[in-house]
Design a protein around this nucleic acid. Structure first.
Lengths: 312, 312
DNA sequence: ATTTTCGATAGTCGGAAGCTATCGACCTGT
DNA sequence: ACAGGTCGATAGCTTCCGACTATCGAAAAT
């Protein structure tokens, strides 16, 4: 049992502190914007509720009893905390604040969010992001279960109860071993991939379907032999010459360019294949304004990466 | 301006926490002992007051929004603090607690209170004594001004608005230089002092009047040449052979016996002269039960000193 | 398709909290 | 000493908040 109902009101606590401050019933009433009798009655009611004498009545300035001072001190703490709720509501309306539980795809979050959190911390110091990674299919389930307030994932996401904000399109590049025949080309046209073996993530990743579609479109062969559960795993498999794959631009920028020498990534030529990235939340969550602001903040960060195509 | 009036109630906060705990309107209402519609209305009212959506309504267990969780967390702090006031009131009624501002005579406090505070701390761990020393006349004025909650001083104290609790009678002994003629006697009869010069404190000390009365009664001569403002000063003057004086038993026990070799104190024989010590507080203070308990605690400490005669 | 569940809404009622007017005690000034 | 002023308490009235019961509408379960 948390807390039963309290036998006094915030009003009464407020009046007590006013009385301690002003040392006069009349002035305290004025400070509270009520009549003196109203304040007298409330103080008396509070005393009866606590079964304590809080005020020493007499001529001259009234004083609180020892009990009155003790109660007033705690009353101030309570009232301050109450004001804290008011301040909080203002923060939540006009900006981003509090702790936001955000789920993010493992194929995107680690390569984008580090850039986002610093920016957010500067512009929204009251905001604390609580980020949890999972595969997209798990993310959507957890979102519906209320584990996350919103998720950052590949679009589209099915669900009538869900609302999405498109952020950007993230192009996919062709990843191949450093000694592959196609390395000499500065970019790849889709049909050039015809017949090659393409490695993919497990189907619980949205990227899996995207890669499968690209295979159909380019005439490549989607390998069923091994399905990775991380982009790093895919990169390793490519380096071991088990096949080619398609890697998203932010991963490439973060983990391959200037680092991994065993794998080379080439952009598509002509039609640019890309995945759509967005924020998704429950339509019933009621925090759409906050989430839209978050979306805007992420788009601003995405602007730093010329390979991304902003949306929304 | 401390805090304006808050646009929500403790009830609403309580209901919100119940809703977070139970995840159902019906169960939350039951936990709060009210009907489900009443709780629905209050939650809605709270949401309007804060202009925030706190609850995600929908199928299955309801969940709080991010804003709801933030508000609920603070609500729990507030409710806990409110419960703290309830607990406090219980403590103040059934025992001693909080901070008590106690004034004490400089001729008594330093020699008695050190024994009292340890005892009180053991039996009333929630009690904190805030002790300030002053001369008795100042003490009474400050008591009336509300500087102290109660004072420990020599009785009687005039004032219709004041209530006293007698604690004990503290015998006075005759203090003389170690080489004085009367030292050879193990006790002194009043008339033996006839003609001797007696040193006293300033008239702002109740002990001054007491000493003056003893001079009249014993035929001794009350010196007007020098009036001390502390018992230590009197002792020094006696040691310098400026005269004799009367010192209270607790001072003697604390500062002379086994320490000061230059001054000897002898008890009275026959009629035992003593001063009455008691607690005094404003009759309007409303904390008489607490103060009576404090009086009892001090009497229990006084019992350790066989030279004191308990009263009250 | 029917029933059940769950929260929202409507209408009513009692009590809490506000107001004005006034009292009683006390202090002050003439 | 007495009139006036100050201060908090009390009384009587009004308003509104928060509770209830009854019922609705949507979604889930059968």
């Amino acid at each position: 049992m948390p807390v039963s109902i309290l036998p006094f009101t915030l009003r009464q606590l407020r009046y007590l502190t006013a009385l301690e401050d002003t040392r006069h019933f009349r002035e305290a009433a004025e400070a509270c914007g009520i009549s003196q009798p109203s304040l007298s009655v409330q103080i008396k009611t509070l005393e009866e509720a606590l079964d304590l004498v809080l005020v020493e009545r007499g001529r001259g300035p009234v004083r609180l009893t020892q009990a009155g001072r003790e109660v007033a001190r705690r009353a101030r703490e309570i009232l301050d905390a109450g004001q804290g709720i008011i301040d909080l509501s203002a923060t939540l309306q006009s900006g981003l604040g509090g702790t936001l539980r955000m789920g993010t795809s493992t194929t995107l979050g680690p390569y984008l969010m580090p850039h986002v959190v610093g920016e957010l911390h500067r512009n929204h110091p009251d905001l604390r992001l609580y980020i949890r990674e999972a595969a997209p299919s798990v993310l959507v389930r957890e979102l519906n279960e209320g584990v996350h307030d919103l998720i950052l994932t590949q679009l589209p996401v099915a669900g009538a109860r869900l609302t999405s904000a498109r952020l950007f399109r993230e192009p996919l590049g062709v990843a191949m071993p450093a000694d592959h025949a196609l390395v000499s080309a500065s970019s790849i046209a889709g049909p050039e991939l015809s017949g090659y073996t393409i490695l993919s993530l497990s189907p619980s990743y949205a990227l899996h379907d995207q890669i499968a579609a690209l295979c159909v479109e380019t005439g490549a062969f989607l390998s069923r032999d091994y399905e990775g559960t991380s982009l790093d795993a895919l990169r390793q498999m490519v380096a071991l010459d088990m096949g080619l794959t398609f890697l998203p631009a932010l991963y490439v920028r973060s983990e391959i360019e200037g680092r991994a020498k065993d794998v080379v990534v080439r952009p598509f030529r002509g039609r640019r294949f890309a995945r759509s990235i967005g924020l998704v939340w429950r339509a019933s969550s009621g925090a759409a304004p906050s989430f839209e602001r978050l979306a805007t903040a992420i788009r601003n960060v995405a602007r730093r990466f010329p390979e991304l195509v902003l949306e929304g």
